[in-house]
Design a protein around this nucleic acid. Structure first.
Length: 481
RNA sequence: GGGUCGAUAGCUCAAUGGUAGAGCAGCAUCCUUUUAAGUUGUUGGUUCCGGGUUCGAAUCCCGGUCGACCCA
């Protein structure tokens, strides 16, 4: 039917796919441009997709949707003429039009464009999903996100907010003289984190490449190169499970600042959140979707040592036994008392971290800096001066999720090499020998931080799943119809 | 990878093992300030795919595909 309308139009000498329209106002700008009490004085040219048609015979109210939202148009036979009105009646819901007219307020007080002229600029050959319930089939929401954006205002607003969140972060960092850089996605060694990488092959070079799993080692080379404040917002790839908190490709912000340390990173991440809450979200209190609690981003954030939390969970001073002969047994015992399953070959730090990630992290709803983690958890951080079993780092947890880890970065090439070589446990990082070479040239002391942008967006938009803040989440390929 | 649940008209959803329906969308009709507009009429199905049981399967069984949730 719609195809026939298109064919008729083309036979009549008009092809909507060859037409265009002008846009002087977005919908929200048009709404603001109306002057109270002065109807039909302001002329606008608007454009968008027809999403509502209320036909009353010789006149109709319709609504178009553009980037900023919906705008009502009033189409009157007397105004646009018999011929144009007859043609307008043939337009379908979902078609894209440009319209010119003047602004007025309807009987019910809605600012509306009195349409004088219109142009059909694109024909929709397929119908829109239902207007009231929207599109709820999650598979279609993800696979055909464009339909979700057209009919589900929540999705539209949430994903637009993500764009503004990223823009705000860039602005905060630029204001502090950070340089935004781009580093390779294809790497010979996927380092900087412990994760299974995706592998691909470069034909001309005859070599396998890995998609990066972190940005860290490249950005630190830039510190060596004399760029003292650098950051990258980029996609990284981990060939692991998919869940509400995990997508195989996700966006990471990594920041490195020379002559700073993990305390400096605390200040920086607070500044980023403060700017976001004030400029983008408009509130410092955000509801946590999973728990229903309000997360308060204002004021001082709690800072607590990793092992203090462990001791609290265990119910006794487990940390005092670190290094003692019965530490592994006591740690296993404590974990099992908490109902955790401990695998036979696990190192003590793995057992303790199981307690942290299963029993503690999910309870950290309010912003919390967890500091002084065991050294085995990250080979790239500086060792604590007082206790070389610990590292000078924090893990920022919010909403029960790890949102941002930060370190005082290890810049001693000997210690760094040793840390790589001595790695224990299941999760081990690959040794990047060129990175060690770079360290040997001298890297300034620095604070560094990684921020999972997707998780940040989950928190700030009150979303329930990572898929709600990623435009096109990874799905198993399926044969398109 | 394991478990649970789901897939029916373009969309949102119904349908004791017995003729597959409704609302919206579409089509036609009436209506010159509507707000999920309203009115009258009406079209529309490979019930995800492949097997099996049965006189008869959207429904029961087996296998598969895709998705959601939970667990690892």
């Amino acid at each position: 039917m719609r195809l026939k309308k298109l064919q008729d139009m083309r036979a009549g000498g008009f092809d909507p796919f060859r037409a265009n329209a002008q846009q002087t106002h977005f919908s929200d700008e048009a709404l603001k441009a109306h002057v109270d009490g002065q109807d039909n004085t302001v002329a606008v040219k608007v454009a968008g997709r027809l999403v509502v048609i209320r036909d009353m015979g010789k006149s109709q109210f319709v609504k178009i949707l553009d980037q900023q939202g919906q705008l009502q148009l009033y189409v009157k036979k007397d105004v646009i003429g018999d011929e144009a009105y007859a043609a307008f009646k043939k337009i379908d819901l979902g078609d894209i039009i440009g319209a010119e007219g003047t602004l007025f307020k309807s009987k019910t007080g809605e600012v509306t464009v009195r349409m004088e002229k219109y142009t059909l600029v694109s024909k929709a050959l397929r119908p829109l999903p239902e207007k009231w319930h929207g599109l709820t089939d999650s598979e279609q929401v993800y696979r055909q996100r464009y339909l979700d954006l057209i009919v589900n205002p929540d999705s539209r607003a949430r994903l637009m907010l993500r764009s503004r969140i990223v823009a705000s972060i860039r602005q905060t960092l630029a204001g502090r003289k950070f340089l935004e850089v781009e580093t390779p996605v294809l790497e010979g060694v996927a380092g900087g984190a412990a994760a299974r990488p995706f592998v691909t092959h470069h034909n001309a070079l005859g070599a396998d490449f890995y998609l990066r799993i972190a940005l860290e080692l490249r950005l630190k080379r830039l510190l060596v190169g004399g760029y003292d404040r650098v950051f990258e917002i980029g996609r990284i790839f981990r060939n692991e499970g998919v869940s509400r908190k995990h997508n195989p490709e996700f966006t990471m912000l990594e920041v490195y600042q020379a002559y700073s340390d993990f305390h400096g990173m605390m200040e920086l991440i607070k500044a980023i959140f403060t700017d976001l809450c004030r400029d983008v979200i408009g509130t410092f209190e955000i509801k946590h979707a999973a728990s229903g609690q309000m997360i308060n981003f204002a004021g001082d954030w709690r800072t607590v040592r990793y092992f203090d939390l462990i001791d609290e969970a265990a119910g006794f001073k487990l940390s005092a036994l670190r290094g003692a002969a019965d530490y592994p047994a006591k740690a296993t015992d404590a974990a099992q008392k908490l109902g955790l399953e401990i695998h036979a070959g696990w190192q003590p730090f793995e057992i303790v971290n199981e307690i942290f990630s299963k029993k503690i992290e999910p309870t950290l709803i309010q912003p919390t800096f967890v500091t002084h983690l065991p050294r085995e958890l990250c080979p790239l951080a500086k060792l604590n001066q007082e206790d070389s079993g610990l590292i000078d780092v924090f893990e920022l947890c919010i909403g029960g999720m790890e949102v941002a880890p930060a370190y005082s970065e290890q810049n001693d090439p000997f210690v760094q090499r040793e840390m790589f070589e001595k790695q224990a446990g299941e999760e081990q990082q690959k040794m990047d020998t060129d990175f060690l070479l770079a360290l040997e040239h001298g890297m300034p002391p620095a604070g560094g931080m990684g921020v999972g942008i997707d998780r940040l967006c989950i928190l700030l938009t009150g979303a329930e799943s990572i898929r709600d803040v990623i435009l096109f989440p990874s799905l198993r390929p399926s044969d398109a119809k």
